[in-house]
Nucleic acid binder design. Structure first.
Length: 262
DNA sequence: AGGACGCCCTGTTCGC
DNA sequence: TGCGAACAGGGCGTCC
């Protein structure tokens, strides 16, 4: 689930709930999620510290501690955050539970355990180590167009490659291409510059608007592809049945009429 | 080098 | 309705 708009929403949620509170205790439900730390090591790194800031790059959320170190949270396909009252019961599949001195908890919940939890000295170091491209909302228009024009890839693969652009996943990749009226298999090198600039603007619009909707599909325009991608959905623009195919090992929805290959 | 694929997990959805 | 199979919005390692 969590792509850039979801993670940005989690970031704002963490900002609004969990900053400037002393961390009392850390509990790990699934050690396999820890990328470069042991449960004990993570506990030591967080104990008696507090979060003072956050940063997001692509689908990664960074929570900065008061000693300068950072916790990295990646949400895989099913991860989310919840701030829990002292008496409230813990959500199922809580894989990381951070308890503050006021008794509240920050829970990282991930039923499929496909996420990642790590420690890093700086977000920049983590981004470089993982070779992530620029965040989709930080990408400059001229660089975007230049890189796209030079790519031999299909449009969807290119948008989803985190080394090219960080933050776009299957759902929003399909949405951006739908709104740009570009076929997901269309070779980027065959697209003229004004159309690439249009793609860039649509990328920004979709991501910004989805953040505004707090990444909640029910708050997004019905004219979007997103609410129609289940089952045998129809194109919200021309009402023809949507095509469903597999691109880059991901289920891809698009409208053959509105997004022609040629 | 870069693309295709299998795999990591487990809850949900699909199809018979 | 009930069941097993296939699938799910991500990313990594491996192979070619």
């Amino acid at each position: 689930m969590p792509e850039l708009p979801d993670v940005e929403t989690y970031k704002r949620y963490l900002d609004a709930t969990a900053l400037f509170q002393t961390i009392e205790h850390v509990r790990i439900g699934a050690p396999m999620l820890l990328a470069n730390a042991t449960p004990r090591g993570l506990g030591r790194a967080l104990s008696r510290r507090c979060f003072v800031t956050t940063h997001r790059h692509g689908k990664y959320l960074f929570a900065g501690l008061d000693n300068g170190r950072w916790v990295v949270l990646h949400f895989g396909m099913t991860g989310r955050l919840a701030y829990i009252r002292p008496a409230e019961s813990l959500p199922d599949f809580t894989q990381l539970l951070i308890t503050f001195s006021n008794g509240f908890h920050l829970a990282y919940i991930a039923p499929r355990k496909l996420g990642r939890i790590a420690l890093t000295d700086t977000p920049q170091a983590f981004v470089e180590k993982h070779e992530l491209g620029p965040d989709a909302l930080e990408f400059e228009r001229t660089a975007f167009v230049r890189f796209a024009a030079a790519s031999q890839s299909g449009a969807k693969r290119w948008l989803l490659d985190q080394k090219t652009i960080a933050g776009i996943g299957n759902i929003y990749g399909d949405e951006i291409l739908f709104q740009s009226r570009l076929n997901p298999r269309r070779k980027l090198s065959s697209i003229v510059k004004p159309e690439l600039e249009h793609l860039y603007r649509k990328m920004r619009y979709v991501l910004v608007r989805a953040i505004h909707a707090q990444a909640n599909p029910e708050r997004m325009p019905r004219s979007w592809l997103l609410p129609h991608r289940r089952g045998r959905g129809r194109c919200p623009r021309c009402h023809e049945p949507l095509q469903q195919s597999n691109i880059s090992s991901r289920t891809t929805y698009y409208c053959a009429g509105c997004q022609p290959l040629a």
